[in-house]
């Protein structure tokens, strides 16, 4: 039963990441402020990390990274590697050190978006010699973080409800 719930939960997360990616790519959802639009898959992956262990977080980080590589046209695997590492670290943090709530979801979504922007800016500016998406980030760092943070709130609430519904309760486990 535990495995079935886990598989069902992972399936929901996968569909969620795909749906966020589709929404991100859809024309009507191109909300942007001064050229900045949130990357929804990052918010989704961060919120999943709140409720899963480090390996699951890393797996969904890699999936999110692959999708970002697909949409941005960069080398497949670059963002997957970065988000995978990030997912592993966040999984450990949320499992043992940080209490998961919507504030942490907003905070870490903002940090993750800024980190991704900086890394991509560094890679493309200094390694490949041209600006990628960092040009907007140079002048609107605060907006990048704010957009990602705000986008994570509904995703966090959804993931929290999924996690609570599909996870077996501690009282029942102790009694058994």
């Amino acid at each position: 039963m535990n495995n079935v719930c886990k598989i069902f939960r992972y399936l929901i997360y996968t569909l969620e990441i795909y749906m966020l990616y589709s929404l991100q790519q859809a024309s009507i959802f191109s909300f942007s402020c001064l050229g900045i639009a949130p990357v929804l898959v990052i918010a989704g992956f961060i919120c999943i990390s709140h409720f899963e262990n480090e390996f699951t977080s890393m797996a969904f980080g890699i999936l999110s990274g692959f999708l970002i590589d697909l949409s941005f046209g960069s080398v497949l695997g670059a963002n997957a590697f970065i988000l995978g590492i990030m997912g592993y670290i966040l999984g450990i943090l949320f499992s043992y050190y940080i209490k998961a709530n919507f504030l942490s979801a907003m905070f870490f979504s903002s940090i993750a978006s800024l980190a991704m922007t900086f890394v991509n800016f560094y890679i493309h500016q200094f390694i490949e010699g041209f600006l990628f998406m960092g040009l907007a980030g140079e002048s609107h760092w605060n907006l990048i973080g704010m957009c990602a943070g705000l986008a994570s709130l509904p995703v966090y609430l959804f993931n929290r409800s999924i996690s609570y519904l599909t996870r077996e309760k501690r009282n029942e486990t102790k009694q058994s």
């Binding site: 749906m19 990616y21 589709s22 929404l23 790519q25 859809a26 999708l67 590589d69 697909l70 497949l76």
Partner: peptide
């Protein structure tokens, strides 16, 4: 990339 695109495409079309 092709394999990943094939899995994502139905979701994108439906959305």
């Amino acid at each position: 990339a092709e394999a990943l695109s094939r899995t994502v495409l139905p979701f994108q079309k439906s959305v």
